[in-house]
Design a protein around this nucleic acid. Structure first.
Lengths: 212, 212
DNA sequence: CCTCTTGGCAAACGTATGTTTCAAACATCC
DNA sequence: GGATGTTTGAAACATACGTTTGCCAAGAGG
């Protein structure tokens, strides 16, 4: 099982380092020496750095997409409609459970990666993720529509992206923000409470309809 | 005035390229050849790439900070309290006017930079900006408190960061989102309308209080 | 006229990066 | 147990980067 070991050690190291410093700022040498594997192992097992980046995302998104699909199946089985808050907490718990609730830091660091995937150019990643996970996300958004009957499609489009921004930004900078809060007020936050706040914020914002 | 020309050409090129591709992904060679100046000019005029990055931010933030201060002065002169919506649209118009409303693209691309400053590690930038513009931002947040009397300090802290995330994310990806919307619905957005939507979204979300 | 400063230019420097190579070690199967 | 295919290891490769250097042109001041 030497191979699986090596591959996973590389993925672990890459995931943590990418989340911490970004893609371009993380060299293969840093990754391989953190993972205690030979430099050439990355190109041997993954082919290139680009493919490594994609593999990191796939390893996280695959269970998430499955978990989200399962929960949607279960929730839709009753036949009754899902409310906005149902849908939001369903998504939140799918994300949290995708790799065990215990490892909340991993979730936070994945949110950071998600943010990076958007902000850092990495066009190849965006395209790759879209055509691999587009159907799940479309299914989710389609459920949002009847949950917010007062919204036009354009309202829904922008509101969901505002919400996505709030989530990605705040969770991906959770570490820095928590430190800032502690500086200012001496208090410390717990990530579950922040997620609760975030869901409330999003829920209120998403329902806003704007006539232009 | 050969110098000012060179300095500004570098700043223009750097601003656009950084916004488009990020800091690490933009080389000095790309910047200088876009700006039609010699490679050594960057290190001659700015000292280093780090200082160039800072200079790009200062060139944008300085007028913005001034414009925001002025507007706050003017608004506070009447003596009457500022509502949340007053404060939000005041900030929005300060940002838009900081470099002329005509060049909305420049504002969008600056939002992208702002997002990068958060997500890309660039610790030096974060510290530098904080101690240079911390006082203006503190002043603004202090006005937010009485405008949302029902909020605890912790509510306000997280809600403002959620709002910041929504703004930075959506505006900095405005180009991509607009294209996506057009693909989906054939419609096209105008950025002023999106800003209007964003303000409504934020206004609703910020006022949410959460008991934990 | 000479000197000194400022800005620009081409070339080079040193380093770090992603990738490739090739031989050695290892595992697997007949 | 030897042959075969797979995985590691150390080294090299080619390239791209930020930065530095040394020289030249133009202008200012005495």
């Amino acid at each position: 099982m030497a191979q699986k070991d090596t591959v996973d050690r590389i993925l672990d190291a890459a995931e943590a380092l990418f989340a911490e410093r970004g893609f371009a700022e993380t060299s293969l040498r840093t990754i391989t020496s953190t993972a205690n594997v030979n430099l050439a192992a990355v190109n041997y097992h993954f082919g290139s750095k680009k493919s490594l980046i994609q593999a990191v995302f796939v390893r996280f998104l695959e269970p998430l997409a499955d978990s989200l699909s399962d929960r949607l199946d279960a929730a839709q089985a009753d036949g009754q409609e899902l409310s906005l808050d149902d849908l939001l907490s369903l998504l939140a718990s799918a994300i949290l459970s995708a790799h065990g609730e215990d490892d909340v830091n991993r979730t936070a660091s994945f949110m950071r990666l998600l943010g990076l995937a958007y902000t850092q150019s990495q066009g190849h990643l965006r395209d790759y993720l879209r055509d691999r996970y587009g159907s799940v996300s479309t299914r989710y958004v389609d459920l949002l529509r009847p949950a917010c009957p007062q919204l036009e499609d354009t309202d829904l489009f922008w509101n969901t992206h505002f919400a996505l921004g709030a989530a990605v930004f705040s969770l991906s900078n959770y570490g820095a923000l928590d430190a800032m809060l502690k500086d200012d007020s001496g208090q410390e936050s717990r990530i579950m409470n922040v997620i609760k706040r975030l869901l409330a914020f999003i829920s209120a914002g998403v329902q806003v309809s704007v006539k232009v």
